[in-house]
Amino acid sequence: MGMDNPGGIPYFILEFGDELVYFSPYTVSLFILALVFTLFAVIAKPERQVDIVFGGDAFYAKETSLAELKFRRFMAIACGFASMGAMVTGDLFNFTLFISLVGICNVGIVAAVKNRHVQNAAYQYGIVALSATVPLFGAAALIAATTGTLSMVELWSNASLAVPLVVKALLVLGVMGEGMAPFYAAKAEMFRAPGAPYVIMCSLSSLLIFLRVIEVVLVI
């Protein structure tokens, strides 16, 4: 290894053919965070929101139906697995695939709520996630063209392979579009949805992919 990886020296590298999955101190900590949160999503029961009627004793309890609970839990777990994959993968095309999987799972978590405002917001976010695939996969294709490889290990160990700055910017913009959920202006609309652990999964996965893309951009 010629250059240093800012995420630390990998503890071990798992090989899937040409795709290396590497566990460095940085990626391992993010991976464990995603794993713990996925376990929370598996065992947690959804929050039950209560609206108090002003000036009286009455209140509305919002119920989450069993079908909705099951679907949102499934999406949250899938989102957790996708974030875990995105945290440790050492291949750029594989990374972009995991990122778009995170994006579509986030759409699924919020789209299952039967509320007009929430579904409108989820629809807008879905369109952003859809259009973000153009810069995302475009960046992966440009990296393959300008360096001839997709493996991050090759890119950081071989100093002569340089990715142009504008390509890195495209990659970051694509990840921003896919993981926009917590920074989304319609946050209040989406997060009005009852069922706390699942909605937090969508914030956490976005946070994790942002942290990971910083490492990727520094490494390549």
Binding site: G17, A78, A82, F93, N94, L101, V107, G108
Partner: peptide, 19 residues
């Protein structure tokens, strides 16, 4: 050689179909 990609790609499709 790129088998993990082919696993993730249909997963994206399946999630989309599920939604």
């Amino acid at each position: 050689t790129r088998g993990l990609d082919t696993v993730v790609e249909p997963t994206i499709l399946f999630i989309a179909f599920a939604i």
